[in-house]
Design a protein around this nucleic acid. Structure first.
Length: 636
RNA sequence: GCCGACUUAGCUCAAUCGGUAGAGCAACUGACUUGUAAUCAGUAGGUUACGGGUUCAAUUCCUGUAGUCGGCACCA
């Protein structure tokens, strides 16, 4: 019997029934066979040695493919488990999936725990198993057989019990180690060549904090040693961009032991902040926003009305004033509600856009705090928009354009997630569906792709989240657009419609930077501390060649620059030019200018741009207009 | 909050087996008078995160607390 195999290019060839991808690859060429790791048979990713019993469309997966990398990492996860089992015979294993950054395995070691040092021994054992070049074979079991095979292992039994009766359960065996797995896998442990265990951490069983904590070992694997080295080097490079490191080196911010999670802004960081705020104010004025500032602290009763006292209490700081309980605001909206209610509103004023750079405080878990990314007080670039229901799509479309504008100024790439109705929600399903559709429609109109994040909406409404990455690849939410179906009701907000009736407005919460702190953290890493001119804390370093001869001219140039609102500093210290240039470069100042006899005589400056060794001499006036233009167009 | 690691001068890091802390940079002083990534010399700088314990002796071992880092959970 022969079967017809269709290849990706559409060609069809006959092979004996029961052939394997390995055979097919060999028949084409030995080098293809060597590069092949797995294959896709009728859209299913399978092992190379899985027999093909009937006509099929196939594609070979080679080491160049993303899927092959995943297979490799999956097999490396098994290798890790195998090694751990040898070193810790009592170890029990939960799951070991492939993730973006490699793989991990969750392990129960009973009373034992792993430290980074232990990873070295585990790696050694893994290399030993690689050397033994053990064949990896697929085993198919019925549910009963699987239960018998893994009897005594509560974790595997837990997994097996979740399979439907009658399904084929696969496991993979390498020597004396066997693990449940969908596969596919490499053909033998010897094919794993370049891997590294990266970190060990605790992780709750099934991701639930009420459960036992397992030990999670992270690692990554590549087909080539050089790819692994490249990856490790990249991780090292990424650490140099870490905003916590750069924040210290560049004098941007600090966090004291006396206030964990409460950042202090240092003079240089303050300049970043003020530039971002000014930019934000200017743009929002243009966009027809009105600005307010609401109090940091308000009476408990307000938080009861808003529902925060009930739903957000454990994250709120409280205090007492004149025997009354007050809470420090964790969000700006309730204050905004009071402002709305302060006057009567007409549909003619809609959409009513009210913005606030509001400082909020939240009691975040101690273990969650991370530099500027996760803090206990931060400034949200908040705005609340009140409108009629029929204005929502237009307004959200408008917001998406505005968000895109802000991010594009910084060349930041982002992705959007639409978070939909969670299990705990208020309102009716119809209204939710309508609201979710409105947000999706606005994305479509704005020409933006989005990912649906099922069930992750706030209890009061669905939202669009704008997510950015830090230098280590971690994803942080910055911008957000949230439809609120609760607060207008709780605060009994109304407006007078065209028919003279009082009606309930729809409210949107939105923040573009999200938190100024987090956004600056992202910017520091994005630019690796070398900020574009318009936000650079110091824009120009003025360096006289000989302090005795050129100080007067240097000071004059510095003053002229400063009077042109350019952040300039003159370095009159008794040091060589090279020393001062180095320092200027280390501090990532955009322009270093050197002034000597020639410049002094003809009113010139010789500048070099950060990261560039080229020297350019121009008249002072020209230099100033060049800088002003660069500041004006924000480096675009 | 949970698991693990870490905390030494302003910064980056040393200190053998438990024997009482050292370097570079920065700072300060002086000399040098400088043309594009570190001039030379000197001075000062420490309750080794904080508390308790073991010991003749603790940066080192044990322990409690705080903070930081990596994850998890949380958050968004």
């Amino acid at each position: 019997m022969s079967i017809k195999i269709t290849f990706p290019d559409g060609s069809v060839k006959e092979y004996p029934q029961g052939t394997t991808l390995a055979n097919i690859a060999s028949a084409i060429s030995p080098s293809l066979r060597k590069k092949s790791v797995a294959g896709v048979v009728n859209d299913e990713l399978v092992d190379l040695n899985r027999p093909i019993e009937s006509d099929a469309t196939i594609r070979l997966v080679t080491t160049d493919d993303k899927e092959a990398w995943e297979v490799l990492n999956h097999s490396t996860a098994h290798l890790l488990a195998h090694a751990v089992k040898r070193l810790y015979p009592h170890a029990l294993f939960w799951v070991g999936p492939v993730v973006e950054e490699g793989f991990y395995y969750d392990i129960d070691l009973g009373a034992d725990s792993l430290s980074e040092e232990d990873l070295v021994d585990i790696e050694k054992m893994m290399n030993q198993i690689v050397k033994e070049n053990i064949i990896i074979e697929r085993v198919e079991l019925t549910k009963e057989e699987a239960l018998a095979q893994f009897k005594g292992d509560p974790y595997k039994v837990d997994l097996i019990e979740n399979f439907e009766e009658g399904t084929k359960i696969s496991a993979y065996r390498q020597g004396d180690f066997i693990d449940l797995c969908r596969g596919p896998h490499l053909e033998s442990t010897g094919q794993i060549k370049a891997f590294k265990l990266l970190k060990v951490a605790g992780a709750y069983f099934k991701g639930d904090a009420n459960n036992k904590m397992l030990q999670r070992v992270y690692g990554i694997s590549f087909f080539k040693k050089e790819d692994l080295d490249k990856h490790l080097l990249m991780l090292e490079e990424a650490k140099k961009r870490d905003h916590r490191k750069l924040g210290k080196e560049l004098g941007l911010f600090m966090i004291s032991e006396y206030g964990p999670g409460f950042p202090f802004w240092l003079p240089n960081g303050m300049i970043l902040r003020r530039e971002l705020e000014q930019f934000w104010y200017d743009k929002h004025m243009q966009e027809g926003y009105q600005l307010i500032q609401t109090p940091i602290m308000l009476n408990r009763q307000l938080w009861e009305v808003s529902g925060h006292w009930e739903n957000y209490r454990e994250n709120m700081y409280t205090s007492e004033i004149d025997e009354m309980e007050f809470a420090i605001k964790p969000m700006n909206c309730p204050g905004g509600m009071l402002v709305y209610k302060h006057t009567l509103h007409s549909y003619k004023d809609f959409p009513l856009r009210i913005g606030e750079l509001g400082l909020v405080h939240r009691h975040e878990a101690s273990g969650a705090l991370t530099g500027l990314f996760r803090v206990r007080n931060f400034t949200q670039d908040d705005a609340h928009i009140f409108c009629r229901e029929d204005q929502v799509i237009d307004e959200v479309t408008n917001l998406i354009r505005l968000f895109d504008y802000f991010y594009s100024v910084f060349n930041l790439s982002y992705h959007i997630e639409l978070s939909t109705r969670p299990e705990k929600y208020i309102g009716t399903i119809e209204v939710w569906d309508k609201a979710e559709k409105a947000l999706a429609e606005a994305c479509k109109r704005g020409g933006k792709e989005f990912k649906v994040n099922e069930g992750d909406g706030a209890f009061y409404g669905p939202k669009l989240d704008f997510k950015l990455r830090d230098s280590l690849g971690r994803i942080w939410q910055c911008g957000t657009i949230q439809l609120d179906m609760k607060l207008p009701e709780r605060f009994d907000l109304t407006y007078i419609d065209a028919d003279g009736e009082r009606k309930r407005p729809v409210m949107l919460h939105r923040a573009i930077y999200g938190s100024i702190e987090r956004f600056i953290g992202i910017l520091i890493e994005h630019y690796a501390g070398a900020f574009p001119l318009w936000i650079a804390p110091r824009q120009v370093d003025v360096i006289p060649v000989n302090p005795e001869l050129h100080s007067a001219y240097a000071e004059k140039v510095n003053e002229i620059l400063m009077s042109n609102k350019i952040r300039s500093h003159v370095d009159l210290r008794d040091e060589k030019v090279g020393y001062k240039i180095r320092e200027s470069q280390v501090k990532k100042v955009p322009y270093s200018i050197v002034l000597g006899d020639k410049e002094q005589e003809e009113n010139l400056v010789t500048f070099r741009h950060y990261g560039d060794t080229k020297q350019v001499t121009v008249p002072l006036d020209e230099f100033i207009s060049m800088l002003k233009a660069e500041i004006q167009n924000k480096g675009k």
